[in-house]
Write a protein that binds this DNA or RNA. Sequence first.
RNA 1: GGAGAGGUGGCCGAGUGGUUUAAGGCGGCGGUCUUGAAAACCGCUGUGGGGGAUAACCUCACCGGGGGUUCAAAUCCCUCCCUCUCCGCCA
Length: 424
Amino acid sequence: MLDIKRVRENPEKVKEALEKRGYQIDFDEFLFLERERLSLLRDIEQKRAVRNSVSQEIARLKKENMQRERTEALIAEMRNLGDEIASIEQRLREIEERVQNFMLLLPNIPHQTVPIGKDDSENVEIRRWGELPKFDFEPLNHWDIGEILGIIDFERAGKIAGSRFAIMRGQGARLERALINFMLDLHSGKGYLEIFPPILVNRASMTATGQLPKFEEDLFRTEAPEFYLIPTAEVPVTNIHREEILSEDDLPIYYASYTPCFRREAGSHGKDVRGLIRQHQFNKVELVKFVKPEDSYNELESLTRDAEEVLQKLGLPYRVVALCTGDLGFASAKTYDIEVWLPGQGRYREISSCSNFEDFQARRANIRFRRRDKKGTEFVHTLNGSGLAIGRTLVAILENYQQKDGSVIVPEALRPYMGIEVIR
RNA sequence: GGAGAGGUGGCCGAGUGGUUUAAGGCGGCGGUCUUGAAAACCGCUGUGGGGGAUAACCUCACCGGGGGUUCAAAUCCCUCCCUCUCCGCCA
């Protein structure tokens, strides 16, 4: 959420910033409601102040048991004032709710360094790493490799669950598990505390990180009791510190968390219908940071490097792309996508998304910190990035390390986890 | 699922309708004393909103969440959430 004071005092600047994202937002109604809200607030506070002091007066009179008539008159007066206050409260509640709803639907303001653009075609490549593999045969798609090796079964997964599900079997299942362990070990060795959180969460948690109220249709939900299945570990892990005031000495906080993730993929019919790229259920190791505001852009760079290191250790070529304003996620102020090379598709595909949310999530989640030498509190900055998506990493390994005979070489870094050098 | 107990400020803990707009303690900060430290003593000590010049200061709200009764609610009522104990069931 944006700072409401900032929005009502600089609506033109906010409007302009959000237009770069492609949002056309009408602030007139909001500004009107906000003026009304503040005027009602002043009115009601003044009336409550009167009631407070008169009530004390009544208490005093009753105790002394004097001036009974005057006491009765005051009580009657306060009864009327109470009715007035109640009716103002009613109007105030309605207006506050509308103002709140408006604020919850405003996306974050892009950082100055974010390239201006309308969609993903205008994202800017920052750097490349690794050499693209050369094949003396036509490289296969991972779903063909998976079928040949008998390590991925899409057809039976369709029977037991539906489309966009997969069964990993044998060395496929082993590879999935190896990647999770490899990544967690790597990150926890670099100062990230390992977390295994709930993967069903409540509505408040989803609202705090920005999935709700705007993206309800992307989420799986249970009812009675109502829970949401997490679309990323970002949700439960960021919410660890919801409604907390941290001390400056606690920061920065780094967490690494493996979880399954669940996405409805509504509106992506016909996209990536084959293979592991787009599944309703997938595994991911997520990195989450809570940092001081002045550090957050350096922290975004190091977070991205930490995610890149996974690909480097696996020997998978990739590039880093800065998302342009039009492609930026709802809650993000700046995002780098890491895209891995997939020979089967002959293109780079997103495997990690590293974002700085600044105080956008912290404000929704009410995560603050206190500086040692200053009074009051400030919102922390939150960041997160995949480090990495397990399924897509597995895809990249199958496609980049495939050999003519259909076997797949296990990257050296994974051999301790796999116990073999080649999947055949 | 059944029965019971409870949720108060950074922490502990009192408080069943009106000098409690939260006692007391611990912790923390400042001071006195001291060569220094400790002890002792004195003072201060939350969050958010509104007003005011982003000052002093004034004011409203906040005792798990929400709603209600009342001139007045931490205190009474309703409802939801959570924690703990015992029983049952269970990976």
